[in-house]
Structure formats: C-alpha cells, structure tokens
C-alpha cells in the first residue's frame, strides 16, 4: 500500500477544505473551543476510516449532518439540556451545494497566509524548506549545498513542516481560545512582552 492512499487524496481534497465550516458548525453547539475541536476531530476520524468514501457525493453536507447527529446524541445524554442546543438544527438539512465561490476566495486568502507563514519560519528552517519545496533536488545535493548532514536536513524540514502546519491550521474567524495548541507558537506570538 502506498504512503499516500487514494482515501488520503480524497480526504485532502474533499474533506479537509471544509474543516473551517465544520469548526464553525461545531462551535455553535459546543461549550468550549476544545469541545468543538473534539467534535471535528471525531468527524475527521470517521471520514478517514470509512470504507465507502467513494460513495459520499457531498462530503460537506455529509459531515455537517454527522456533527448534527453527534450533537443530538450528546444533548440526549446530557443531564442539563441547554436551550440553545435545540435551536437551529434544521440549518443542517439545507444542502449547501454552492461552496465553490467561497472556496475560491478562501484559496486566495490562503495564498497570502501561506506566504506569511513561510516568511515567519526561523531562517534555518525556511532555507531548508525553500530548497526542498522545489521538486527535483536530490536530498543529498541539498544537504551538501547547505553543509548539513542528511539527518539535520530532515530535522529542519520536519520542523518547518510542523510550524507551517500549525500556522496554517484552519481556525475560526474570531480569535478564540486555543488551549489545545502547541505552546511554542503562543510563545512566539507573545514575544514583545
């Protein structure tokens, strides 16, 4: 089985782009950002382990329904039912089939964020990343050119990937509590203190 399976390709292209929509939906019914994140993580887990993924015609609607059902389950099990939990569930029954324009705009915004995130990398990581993102360099050549061992190259690239993934992680429009996030980025954001 290859490193990147067909289901991964599908997951990357048809599921992950809607993560922010999922977060928005989950946040409407959650008491905390952590709970919303858990809900979304659970949805992603189910999507990436489903055997019938090829049959899912509209992943976004499918996932929003899944969240709704999970929320309803939780509400039923909860001892104290908050009123807001019961409002606007019907929203989800309206299929949203017009995401494309939204996605195009989001993609553009994404490009700006990407440039910013790359710029913000520590220089050593950024140099390695820039060399590796262009296809066709052999890792040995890059390592030799930068005067690094292959293992150092690997570590710096991994660090760059990690920092970029953190910086570009989908989050809600409003700044919100991010207790589950890595401490290092939070430290960096607070540097002026």
């Amino acid at each position: 089985m290859p490193v990147v399976r067909p289901i991964d390709r599908w997951f990357i292209e048809e599921v992950l782009p809607f993560e922010r929509d999922l977060l928005d939906a989950a946040a409407r019914w959650s008491d905390s950002a952590d709970e919303a994140r858990d809900l979304v993580q659970e949805v992603l887990t189910r999507m990436l382990s489903t055997e019938g993924w090829q049959a899912i015609t509209n992943p976004k609607t499918y996932m929003l329904r899944m969240i709704r059902n999970m929320v309803i389950d939780r509400v039923r099990r909860a001892k104290v039912v908050e009123f807001r939990h019961l409002v606007d569930h019907d929203d989800f029954d309206v299929a949203d089939d017009a995401p494309d324009q939204h996605r195009v705009t989001a993609d553009r915004q994404m490009l700006a964020e990407v440039a910013e995130a790359v710029e913000a990398l520590p220089e050593r990581c950024r140099i390695v990343f820039e060399r590796c993102r262009v296809e066709g360099h052999s890792p040995k050549d890059i390592a030799a050119e930068l005067g690094l061992s292959l293992s150092t190259l690997e570590k710096r690239l991994a660090r760059a990937i990690h920092l970029l993934a953190l910086a570009l992680e989908p989050r809600r429009g409003d700044p919100y509590e991010t207790s589950g996030r890595e401490p290092e980025t939070r430290r960096r954001l607070r540097l002026p203190n």
Binding site: V4, D8, I12, V114, R133, I161, H162, A165, L168
Partner: peptide, 9 residues
C-alpha cells in the same frame, strides 16, 4: 493534514 499543507504551500 501535513501533506495537504505541503501541497498547498
């Protein structure tokens, strides 16, 4: 997620 980020970047 990391792969998606890589491809986007």
């Amino acid at each position: 997620r990391a792969l998606a980020m890589w491809e986007r970047v």
